[in-house]
Design a protein around this nucleic acid. Sequence first.
RNA 1: GGUCGGGUGGCCGAGUGGCUAGGCAGAGGUCUGCAAAACCUCGUACGGCGGUUCGAAUCCGCUCCCGACCUCCA
Length: 502
Amino acid sequence: MKTELRVHNSLSGEKEVFKPIHEGHVGMYVCGPTVYSDVHLGNCRTFVSFDVIFRYLMHLGYKVRYVRNITDVGHLEGDADTDAEDKISKKARLEKLEPMEVVQYYANGFHKVMQQYNALSPSIEPRATGHIIEQIEMVQSILDNGYAYVENGSVYFDTAKLISTQKGVYGQLSGRKPEELLAETRENLKKQDEKHSPIDFAIWIKADPSHLMRWNSPWSVGFPGWHLECSAMSTKYLGKTFDIHGGGFDLKFPHHENEIAQSHGACSCSPAHYWLHANMLMLNGKKMSKSDGNTINPEQLLTGDSPHISKGYSPMVVRFFMLQSHYRSTLDMTDEALLAAEKGYRRMMEAYATLQGMQHPGGGVAGALDQEIKDLIDSVYDEMNDDFNTPRALARMFELVSKINALKGGQLSFGDLLPETLAQLKQSFQSFLFDVLGLKDESEAAGGDKELLDGLMQLIIEMRKEARERKDWGTSDMIRDALKELHLQLKDGKEGTSWSKE
RNA sequence: GGUCGGGUGGCCGAGUGGCUAGGCAGAGGUCUGCAAAACCUCGUACGGCGGUUCGAAUCCGCUCCCGACCUCCA
């Protein structure tokens, strides 16, 4: 591990050396879901990506405060700022539920799926409705600084003013030119008569009488704008300026751009040093879309109940599949690709099991093999340091898998390997797979009574061995075939027979 | 239409101005009673057309296609 951590910063468009504000500590904010429906699989990819980033930062020894919000108010239909219904409010009205019932239900579902994918809980998971006061205070600061105006009980951010007074701020993240933004958006936005300019956006919205969620404020009974919650909550828990702000690519504009604007309006400060964006998940070469049926949810993926897949895939297979691509690239999910990921995942896990069971016979010299293995271990970390390049890191891991299997099969010799190196390999392999990548050995987890199964299998293997010594191939093959029916595979090797679940 | 990002071998996916990841599938071989597993070897890919260069899939221009955001979709 000789390299420094470098991350791709969306703000500069370049990879930069990562330097936290406070040495040894990292503050990271990731935009979480709006809980008005079942969690989108694409969202899962984003959160798995940031889960690995969170894990890797901790693995490097940082104390990380990871804040991921839950949006439970303010996100309007169509992401408009006004004259549209709040997503949660609408759901509550349609289902005749309290808005908080809607929120609780889908937040529970979201947590369940995240748990299935073995994503760690964030350090803090704040909700927008729990931070109304902070949001009102922030609106007030922005007003005090002259970067917002009140119209008919609603408060709007004065984007045009920010553009003219703080040059180069608005549009930097999304690569948009302020002049064009000001010019282009004139026509199709009619109902926005309260706004001075089409690119202004609401930070406090006066609630019409039918609106279910409403709070008192100095300006009206209403609710906060969508972008504001993230600014208020990140400031509260991470400070005005913190290290990493993450989210899906689709949030770059306007959401993240507006967050930056709000911070500049409230304190003339920029919220985050590094902006990280996770790219989209596609299905069969196209974006997922409910309207044309090109979509699949986490539940269907698990059960296989979908025309897009031939069978169900376990969460760890899906996680592994996601990690085989880089978080900044789009990822195309196909049945064939999932099948390939499933096999790769199992190969990796079986090599892990093989490795842990390995005993060095003692002796050994630090030959070429010894060096090769050490270099591979180092390169895994080098790849991760290069903007969390999980696919390359996994590629190096698979090269280690070949070494492990060859040591077991006798194609490589322990004589060329020091016992310390084997110990180091065991340790690194395990911590990388489980702590950093966040994978789990599912065969073990599902097994339940592992000791019993192990014992039974040893007995069966022993009986089959005796049959084979008698050249009783009928019995031997019968045992093998029967186990195969139970999805248990026997592997006859030089050192005897082992087994694994399929 | 505007802005931005892509198009890599059968599939998924890294990556890079020359030393050509990895997984899966396929072919051949080793091992094996047979098979599986494992190991070894192989296919020489970078949308199309030009250009820059000793050399480009990697840089530039044009073109076709796909995607994201700008307008409901994470």
